[in-house]
């Protein structure tokens, strides 16, 4: 890397650029370009010909169709927004709490960590369909995408021999908490990894200074974990929005499958831009308050 004639600053910039290059090329090719195309489609009318797709301008027509011509989109969209509003704080607090407990030394911690990660393994794609299919098919054949919502948990509880009244009570309480708990697997892991990165001497210092546990949590744990809080807020927002079981997503993929690409693209764009604004806002709010060695 030693090149005469390059200042230290420029050399640093060059290395930095080279290191990030493989990733940037990938992100632009596989994510940015498809998204730009989605935007383009949302302003066009597509005609499918034998070997190609013909695009012609349609202005805002698809957007008007999304809001006015389609009765499903707007309610689903608002629904997804409000869901996110209570889901994100709950998931964050819950997963931080669980992570603090799971990252301390006790027997069987790996077992418990695995238990809390199981939902991530199961709820992804085909495995969920298979497990859930086996749970629901016997009862009604009604297959919801997210497994272990009330619907798919019921046959399991029935099989455990509970009475119907008891089940419906349990379901009412458990359903919400349970669903959110299921969505916390990744966040718990990220927090655990973050907690492992907190230098032990900080705890020694606070103990010597006579801080109690509550103070230690806020002064050391919470501060040091703050970069991970940003990670998890962004992850949770994105996960909640792009969840395949989310009504907007279901609607969009249905449209795409019917090759109603333009309308689907318009909805996807509205949806994306909303999330974009939310994430940008979260960043603006949180990034000035997080801990970093570099500053």
């Amino acid at each position: 890397m030693k090149r005469p004639g390059l200042t230290y600053e420029r050399r640093k910039a060059l290395t930095g650029f080279l290191f990030t290059l493989p990733f940037v090329i990938g992100a632009i090719t596989f994510f940015l370009r498809p998204f730009i195309n989605t935007l383009l489609y949302s302003f066009s009318t597509l005609e499918f010909q034998e070997n190609s797709v013909k695009m012609s301008m349609a202005g805002f027509q698809n957007y008007i169709d999304a809001f006015v011509g389609n009765s499903e989109f707007l309610p689903a969209f608002l629904n997804a927004l409000t869901d996110m509003l209570y889901e994100v704080p709950f998931i964050l607090v819950f997963s931080l709490g669980i992570a603090v407990v799971l990252s301390s030394d006790f027997h069987g911690r790996t077992f418990f960590r695995a238990a809390f990660f199981l939902p991530v393994i199961i709820s992804s794609g085909q495995v969920a369909a298979a497990v859930e299919g086996s749970a629901t098919a016997a009862l009604s054949g009604d297959q919801s995408v997210m497994m272990f919502q009330a619907l798919s948990m019921e046959p399991m509880l029935i099989s455990l021999g509970m009475s119907e009244g008891l089940i419906s009570t349990i379901m009412g309480v458990v359903n919400n908490i349970f669903e959110l708990t299921w969505k916390s697997g990744v966040q718990i892991l990220v927090f655990i990894a973050g907690l492992k990165g907190i230098p032990g001497y900080l705890y020694e210092v606070t103990e010597l200074e006579g801080a109690n546990k509550w103070e230690t949590f806020w002064l050391v744990t919470f501060r040091m974990i703050s970069p991970m809080i940003i990670v998890n807020v962004v992850y949770t927002v994105v996960d909640s929005f792009s969840d395949a079981g989310n009504p907007v997503m279901k609607h969009i993929s249905k449209l795409t499958q019917n090759l109603d690409i333009e309308l689907g693209s318009a909805m996807a764009s509205i949806y994306f831009i909303t999330v974009f604004i939310i994430v940008a806002f979260v960043f603006w709010l949180l990034s000035r308050k997080t801990f970093s060695y570099s500053e």
Binding site: E9, K12, A13, T15, G16, F17, T20, F23, V24, A27, I28, F31, L32, R33, P34, F35, N37, T38, Y41, V234, Y235, V238, F241, S242, A244, M249, I252, S253, T256, I261, G264, S265, A268, Y271, F272, V275, F276, V279, F283, S294
Partner: peptide
């Protein structure tokens, strides 16, 4: 390494997180 453009690149990374496969499946 805080280098010129690093912030832009990190923004690209963060916002690419939002491009879910379902939405961009067709493109």
């Amino acid at each position: 390494m805080k280098f010129r453009g690093s912030k832009v690149i990190f923004k690209i990374i963060t916002y690419s997180l939002l491009f879910s496969g379902t939405v961009t499946a067709f493109p």
